[in-house]
Each structure stands twice: as structure tokens, then as C-alpha cells.
Amino acid sequence: MEASIKTENLTKCFGSFTAVNNITFKVDKGEIFGFLGANGAGKTTAMRMLCGLLHPTSGKASVAGFDVFTQREQIKKNIGYMSQKFSLYEDLTIKENINFFGTIYGLSNTKIKEKTEQLLIRLNLMEEANSLVASLPLGWKQKLSFSLALIHDPKIVFLDEPTGGVDPITRRQFWELIYETADSGTTVFVTTHYMDEAEYCNRVSIMVDGKIEAIDTPDNLKKLFDASTMDEVFYLLARGASTQE
């Protein structure tokens, strides 16, 4: 199967601190890849490098077949990104946000119209279409944010802790959206703190102190570490970390 994301010894240093230390991994097309790690382990830094928001210090990486050093602009056309912090325009309505991001990604007006309708129906936000994003509850905002990251049908979507602070029901719905997305062939690269969510992923990697300590399917990892849940696996690996909260 062709690789969606491929990194080789990717490293990022901030001064003398190495945030991401020689990570090498591969994510296949259509896969849901869980990128786990404690706070400060370097997940967000690694993800920001892959999205073209941050210059890697050394190593190699390609996203959707494009090089992160030289083809950043092509990468941006082919990926969607949902950051940790909610970052749609709160003072615009749902419809206006869809329109805005649709246009920026170069979608035609008819396509935007079609997408808007699909999106509103899928998220059941028909009635709120013209209300300001600021007035929505967090869970709805997150789902909207996710859907907008997909508006231009990217090959890969990066989700940085998408379910932080969201109630269990909405989390469940959120994961349903993720499954739908992966089924349609989009690669999902997701970071999370919740180990139950890790079980939903096809494969996960666990980062400790800037290094990837384990990478496999959740089942294999549990077998390998002789653990019954991903929670235990995570504890075993993260215990030795120096940069825990």
C-alpha cells in the first residue's frame, strides 16, 4: 500500500532542547493513525512539522508524496488541519466560515454550496447555519472544525487532540465521523490523551521524550507489553519520561 506520510530520522531542536528526536515511521493511505504521548512529549511539534508550520532541524519527511522541506505549499493543498485550540472565526456564522475556508482552498461556488449542504446535514446544524460560531457549544464547534478541515477533500487530515474537553457522547460521535472519513480513503493522523480512543485507531505510536518508543496495532502492543488495556501500555512506556506534567 502506498504511504501517506513517511518520515526518516525527523528531528526538531529548539536551542539545546530536542523536542522531536530522530523519529521514523510510516502511515498508510486510509489508515487511522494514533499519535500518542504525554504532554510535552513532542506530538504537536512533530505534527506541526508535517503540516508545514514548522521547519524540521534535520531528517527527511514526505506528506502526501511531497517533501516537507521543499514542497510545503503543495502539502498545504492536500492536507486538512485541526489544531488543539479551536480556531475558526467565532464572529462569523457557520455558513460564512464554510464559505471562507472553501474559497481559500479554491473550491468553486457550486462546490461550496454542495459541501455546505452536505456538512450541515451531516452535523445536523441546518438550523444553526446562520448563527455565530461563538454561540455554539464546544462539542459542536469541534465537529464543525473537523468537517471544515475536510472541506477540500484532503488526502490526509491532521487532528491535534480533537476531543479535548468534549463530553463522552460527542466524543463517540466524533469518532464516528473519523471512521467515515477513513472509509472514504482519507488518512487520519490523530493525537490524543484518551487511551480508550487509542483502541479505535488502526495503528498507534507512543512518543516519550521526543522519541517513538512503540509503534504497532493496539492489539499487538497489548500483547507485547503483556497488558490488558492501552492505558497500561502507556503507563509502562511513559513512566520513564523526564518531561511529564
Binding site: 498545504k76 488541519y81 489544531s83 479551536f86 472565526y89
Partner: peptide, 13 residues
């Protein structure tokens, strides 16, 4: 502050 600039930075703008 709102983080919207980062969202724009991952787009082709």
C-alpha cells in the same frame, strides 16, 4: 491569540 492565524497558515493562502 485566537489561533485563527495558524489555521490560515495551513491553507494555501
Amino acid at each position: 491569540e485566537m489561533g485563527t492565524i495558524e489555521q490560515l497558515n495551513v491553507t494555501p493562502v
